[in-house]
Amino acid sequence: MKNADIRALSIEDLKTQIKTEQASGQSLRFAHAISPLENPIRLKQSRKNVARLLTELTRRENEQANNTAN
């Protein structure tokens, strides 16, 4: 998922996408523990996607907090 795609999501969509990506990453880790994945880079990509989503969510929440404080 690209940053432009992430910025286009609403806060609710971000939260949903985070849960989905975390569940996907967990299932990838379990699958990799049982037998090696064909493409283990997917684990790294999944972690990075979660981090990108969480970063955008935090940025928006801070932005909202600053707007309401002013």
Rank of each mutant, 00 (worst) to 15 (best):
R52Y: 12
N3G: 08
E61Q: 14
A65T: 08
L53V: 05
A31T: 04
T58Y: 15
N62D: 05
T68A: 14
Q64L: 09
R7D: 12
T68C: 14
K19G: 02
P36H: 02
A8L: 05
K2T: 07
I41P: 04
R52S: 13
A4R: 14
A65I: 03
F30N: 11
E61D: 15
N39Q: 11
N67Y: 15
N70D: 12
M1C: 03
Q45I: 09
K44G: 10
N62L: 02
D5E: 08
E38I: 06
L14A: 00
L37C: 00
R59N: 06
T68E: 13
N70F: 15
D13E: 13
N39P: 05
K44L: 06
I11A: 01
R7Y: 10
K15I: 04
T16Q: 01
M1T: 06
P36L: 03
D5W: 04
Q22E: 03
N3M: 02
K2A: 06
I41H: 14
L54E: 13
I41E: 15
K44R: 15
L28W: 03
L28S: 05
L14M: 08
I34C: 09
T20R: 08
R60F: 06
T20C: 07
K19N: 05
L53A: 00
N67K: 15
E38H: 08
K2S: 02
L57E: 14
A8G: 00
G25Y: 03
E63D: 13
Q22P: 04
D5A: 07
I18E: 05
R47N: 12
R60H: 03
N49T: 04
L28A: 03
A51R: 13
E61I: 07
D5N: 04
M1A: 06
E63M: 09
K2R: 07
K48E: 12
K19M: 11
Q64H: 12
N62E: 04
T16M: 02
K19Q: 08
P36Q: 09
N67G: 12
T58C: 14
S27R: 15
I34A: 12
P36F: 01
L53P: 02
D5L: 05
L28M: 06
R7W: 11
L9T: 05
Q22A: 05
N39W: 04
R52I: 09
K15C: 05
H32K: 07
Q22R: 01
L43T: 02
Q17E: 14
I18C: 06
I11M: 11
P36E: 00
Q22S: 01
R42P: 00
L9M: 05
A4Q: 11
R59A: 09
S10K: 01
R59F: 08
A65P: 08
Q64W: 09
R47M: 10
N3V: 09
D13C: 04
V50I: 00
T68P: 11
K19Y: 08
Q17Y: 12
E63L: 10
R47T: 09
R29K: 09
R47E: 13
F30Q: 14
Q26N: 15
R42M: 00
Q26D: 13
R60W: 00
E38Y: 01
N66Y: 14
S24K: 15
T58H: 13
A69K: 08
L54Q: 11
N39H: 09
M1L: 07
